[in-house]
Computed example of a mutant assay.
Amino acid sequence: MSKPQVEMYWDAGSTNTYFALKLIKPILEKHNAELVLQPYNVGYVFRSNNYELMKEPKAKLRARKTDLMRWAAKYDLPFQIPRQFPIKSSRILRGSLAMRRKGLELQFVERVFDAYWQEGNATVAEYEGLRPIVTALGVDADWFEQLAASEEIAAEVARSTDCGIERGVFGVPMIFVENEMFWGKDRMEFVDDELTRLAARAGQATEQSA
């Protein structure tokens, strides 16, 4: 029997995606599920809708930061708001698809998120800052940069983003279990419940066909 799949639309500039990547792990292990990452260019979507995060009311921005630090404390995560925020994430999104070719997409994404959201390393927005991560994963950095910067990969990121928009994705992290959509880091209970229902349906189908 194949593993159930959980899709996650993500962007490296998303604080909530950092938490979602951490919090979904025990759920994936519980259900022996596979995480499928789908890059989603939030900056492109924001610009298309004339939305600027940092122009939100200051009180709301302060409250968001306080809330994020509460999440970090609750789950004992070394999260911090980087001094340089926001960053352009297009090279990271491209890089993830290059690393997919090597079967190292998730490891790459996790290391990038840790570098930025735990260490405050904003150099990951540039290929020069991504090269040490790639090298540590055993991949040739020149090969990585050449592929990530290619039109082929740029088109893949655009297709992934457009596909997300067509599916109703309006922000990240957006998580899909089959056709059920869950938005945000605080929907893990619902993801868990849906995977449980999926397993029950699969079990019933197996019994009926036996």
Rank of each mutant, 00 (worst) to 15 (best):
S2H: 07
K3M: 14
K3H: 12
P4F: 12
E7A: 10
Y9N: 06
D11W: 04
D11F: 01
T15M: 05
T15E: 08
T15S: 11
N16D: 04
Y18D: 08
F19R: 06
L23R: 14
L23N: 05
L23C: 06
I24T: 09
K25E: 15
K25P: 06
K25L: 12
P26Y: 03
K30F: 02
L35D: 08
Q38D: 03
Y40D: 03
N41I: 03
G43W: 03
G43M: 09
V45F: 08
N49M: 12
Y51G: 00
L53M: 11
L53S: 04
M54E: 10
M54R: 09
K55E: 14
K55Q: 15
L68Q: 08
L68T: 01
W71M: 13
A72V: 11
A73T: 05
K74M: 12
K74S: 01
D76M: 00
F79N: 01
F79Q: 04
I81W: 12
R83K: 12
F85L: 05
K88S: 14
K88R: 11
S89I: 09
S89F: 07
S89M: 09
R91P: 01
R94V: 01
R94I: 03
A98G: 02
M99I: 05
R100K: 15
R100G: 00
R101V: 11
R101W: 01
G103I: 06
G103W: 08
E110W: 01
Q118Y: 05
E119Q: 14
N121H: 06
V124N: 06
G129R: 13
P132M: 06
I133C: 01
I133E: 02
F144M: 10
E145G: 04
L147K: 04
S150G: 00
E151P: 00
E152I: 11
E152R: 14
A154F: 08
E156A: 02
E156P: 00
D162A: 15
G164P: 08
E166C: 01
V169M: 07
F170S: 09
V177W: 02
N179F: 03
F182T: 10
W183V: 02
R187V: 13
R187T: 13
F190M: 15
V191F: 04
V191S: 05
D192C: 10
E194D: 05
L195S: 05
A200T: 13
R201Y: 04
G203M: 03
G203L: 09
Q204F: 07
Q204K: 14
E207I: 07
Q208A: 11
Q208Y: 06
S209P: 03
